[in-house]
Simulated scan of single mutants.
Amino acid sequence: MALGRRGRDRTINYWPGFVDALSTLLLVFVFLLSVFMITQYFLTQEMMGKDTVLQRLESQIRQLTELLSLERASGQAADGEMASLRASLDAMQAERDDLRGRLAAIPGAAAENGREQALNREVEAQKDATASALARIELLNQQIAALRRQMAALEEALNVSEKRDVESQARIADLGRRLNVALAQRVQELTRYRSEFFGRLRTILGNRPDIRIVGDRFVFQSEFFFDPGSAALRPEARTELDKLAGAILELEKEIPKDIDWALRIDGHTDIRPIANAQFPSNWELSSARAIAVVQYLISRGVSPQHLIAAGFGEFQPIDTSGTPEALARNRRIELKLTER
């Protein structure tokens, strides 16, 4: 029976690897979609800022147009007033000239002379009013010219803003394309290093039945590192972890600095509950085991920036059949080379 069970354990199950490959592709797609959404968000924010500037410029143009219309109306009223003043002045001057002629024909007409003086004063007053109206019209003309210059400047600023908006959209689109290309390159590079790293681990650790590669993860049975219900590393596990640490240190030298990578250590348990003073649940047990592996690798010189510890409890099984063999497969430590 033991030999039969060992044969079943060594049967290659391609389904988890296929699922993990699909999961990796899905994660890459989700990441690319997130980058696209972030790009669209910044583009929307910039466009909203441009729209606000355009609305403010259009509001200023409308205000200036209204002021220009008012000034033009005032100018027309002033022109009408000035024309009326000139007509009145011309009539008074004609009346004055008529009175002078009559006075010249009638000697000693003092009353008429007084009338002429009054008309002269009124004519002078009309002249002053006409001069004041002319000055006002000149001021209005200057104001209208200034408003026209300001409107021209605003229209030019609006055109420049629209041109910059078009250029900004083109730059953002180009940035998105370059970002997608760079991301794809980084994913390809990391995939290549992952394959080389796992191949190196397989060579270092040997072809053991309790160590296998499933998809993009290197899977150790928990019994390889820990006694049942414990998070303390077994003495024989430290020798194998020393080999693992050496492989990681070589990997740190090979992967370029601009690739932000990390080796994630995942702890998993089976579905049987645990509840004691040290581990109230399988969450604590799986997390403690992952942390124990990470701490030992750090003690062997591996950079903490390249390590992640995660506990999944019993909630990520790879075999749900409930048999003793399935429970054993679900109690595991997984290594996954990924981006941070």
Score class of each variant (00 low, 15 high):
13 N>M: 12
18 F>Y: 15
19 V>L: 08
21 A>N: 05
21 A>E: 03
25 L>W: 15
29 F>R: 06
31 F>C: 04
47 M>F: 15
52 T>P: 01
54 L>P: 00
56 R>A: 15
56 R>V: 15
75 G>Y: 13
78 A>T: 12
80 G>D: 08
88 S>G: 07
96 R>G: 07
102 R>S: 09
103 L>W: 09
108 G>R: 05
115 R>E: 14
120 N>S: 13
126 Q>M: 10
129 A>Y: 08
131 A>C: 00
132 S>D: 07
138 E>L: 09
138 E>Y: 15
145 A>I: 09
154 L>M: 11
157 A>S: 14
157 A>G: 06
161 S>L: 12
168 S>P: 00
169 Q>A: 15
171 R>C: 05
179 L>N: 09
180 N>D: 13
184 A>Y: 06
186 R>L: 09
190 L>T: 04
192 R>H: 12
192 R>E: 05
195 S>R: 03
203 T>H: 07
208 R>Y: 06
213 I>E: 00
215 G>E: 09
219 V>H: 04
220 F>A: 00
232 A>P: 02
238 R>V: 14
242 D>G: 06
247 A>M: 04
248 I>Y: 10
251 L>F: 08
252 E>S: 05
266 D>M: 08
268 H>I: 04
291 I>H: 02
304 P>N: 02
312 F>S: 04
317 P>F: 13
329 R>S: 09
333 I>Y: 03
335 L>C: 07
335 L>G: 08
338 T>E: 01
338 T>R: 07
